[in-house]
């Protein structure tokens, strides 16, 4: 699971959970893949991201590198910055571990890169 996807997942679907975001990451296995860099796509995604959540996620995996803590100005023209975001958002992948609901502690397992967000009937 890529950190772009993590940036959008919530546990709000659990009964009684009000925000359910961000999901904490407990990763046992992380890998890095290679994906074609598309600066326009990255520029377009940056305003949609929850930046602190992306930063925190990368940091918790030890992959934050020298990614700035805040979005820089005129990022559209800064290829170096866009490449860093591209890498964090699309190339860093959690292979195995858990996502954890911040309110209930409910764990959503990630196996082979796929988060299982299914809930039992009594949790909905």
């Amino acid at each position: 699971m890529k950190l772009l996807t993590h940036n959008m997942l919530t546990s709000k679907c659990i009964k009684g959970v009000s925000v359910g975001y961000p999901l904490k990451i407990n990763a046992s296995d992380v890998k890095e893949t290679e994906i074609d860099f598309n600066p326009e796509f990255v520029s377009k995604m940056i305003p949609k991201l929850d930046w602190p959540v992306l930063y925190e996620a990368a940091d918790s995996l030890g992959k934050v590198g020298d990614l700035p803590k805040n979005i820089i100005e005129n990022f559209e023209n800064d290829e170096d910055f866009l490449k860093k975001v591209h890498h964090i958002m699309l190339e860093v992948e959690i292979v195995n571990g858990n996502l954890i609901c911040p309110e209930t502690g409910r764990k959503f397992p990630i196996n082979n890169g796929i988060p299982n967000m299914l809930l039992n009937e009594d949790e909905i």
């Binding site: 699971m1 997942l9 919530t10 890169g113 988060p115 299914l118």
Partner: peptide, 22 residues
């Protein structure tokens, strides 16, 4: 292929609202 992510969920119930308009 590496530009794919899969999420196991019930589309009808999960309604990942943070994905809205994304």
């Amino acid at each position: 292929i590496s530009n794919i992510d899969l999420v196991q969920c019930d589309v009808l119930k999960y309604a990942p609202s943070r994905f809205n308009d994304c």
